[in-house]
């Protein structure tokens, strides 16, 4: 087996073996989806009758964020601290191979998440509409941006700080990301801030592409593209391998 394929498998296996990462990438998204679909307490945007119709795209956005930002950031931070990244730098796999393997592992994990979450949402009565390809494109852009943010923390902070910061950011972006309740419930200034963040842009884009009769605001695409460029560049410039 070629090096980077073996590395991809190993990355995926290590992620699925970490209890905290499974909880974060699958447990919490599925739990939120099921709970708030059945217990109808959250506000819904105008024109949406079922809770699950609003929640499903938002929770998909949360899943992307949990994998590309939190899980990747924490794992990479500890790998840096344990000298794993340094050691791999002197193997034929090298840094490009490692980066390729991590990318592939993230995308595979997101596919698993999407399968589980869409399955659960359909079971809860969701009827997906719209354009899945456009949704996938938004997901990919957001993945690049989130991964950049995760690696920015992993490459500059101590692993323990990355752990704390990534989890903190997860909570903030969950609340400001339009994932479990609509953005228009937020007070004006806060809503303006959240619109500039990648989390809200992704959930806007997924709501727009997966729910009928809604359009993706151009602003959401612009925000996603900017984060997808700025965050990885910042990570690449500041990353310290050891």
């Amino acid at each position: 087996m070629s090096g980077w394929r073996a590395q991809t498998r190993a990355e995926l296996k290590m992620t699925l073996r970490r209890g905290d990462s499974v909880l974060l990438t699958l447990g919490i998204p599925v739990g939120l989806l099921v709970f708030f679909s059945l217990v109808d307490v959250l506000p819904k945007p105008a024109g949406v009758s079922d809770a699950v119709t609003f929640l499903a795209p938002g929770i998909l956005a949360l899943a992307v964020m949990s994998t590309a930002l939190v899980s990747l950031g924490i794992a990479t931070g500890f790998e840096r601290q344990y000298g794993v990244l340094k050691r791999l730098g002197s193997t034929p796999l090298g840094r490009p191979g490692l980066l390729a393997a991590k990318t592939a592992a993230i995308i595979m994990l997101e596919v698993i998440q999407a399968a589980v979450l869409v399955g659960a949402a359909v079971a809860l009565g969701w009827h997906p509409h719209g354009n899945p390809l456009l949704a996938a494109a938004a997901g990919l852009l957001a993945t690049i941006g989130f991964a950049g943010l995760g690696l920015l923390m992993a490459g500059t902070l101590r692993a323990e700080f990355t752990l704390a910061a990534a989890n903190g950011l997860y909570l903030v972006l969950l609340l400001l990301g339009g994932m479990v309740f609509p953005l228009d419930k937020l007070p004006g200034p806060l809503r303006a801030v959240s619109r500039a963040l990648p989390a809200a842009a992704l959930s806007d884009a997924l709501h727009g592409t997966l729910v009928v009769a809604v359009h993706v605001p151009t602003r959401a695409w612009i925000v996603l593209v900017i984060w997808a460029v700025v965050a990885p560049v910042a990570a690449a410039v500041t990353f310290r391998w050891e």
Partner: peptide, 11 residues
């Protein structure tokens, strides 16, 4: 290469 410490995934 054998580093002075670490270099392996803890899990």
């Amino acid at each position: 290469v054998m580093l002075q410490r670490g270099g392996v995934y803890p899990a």
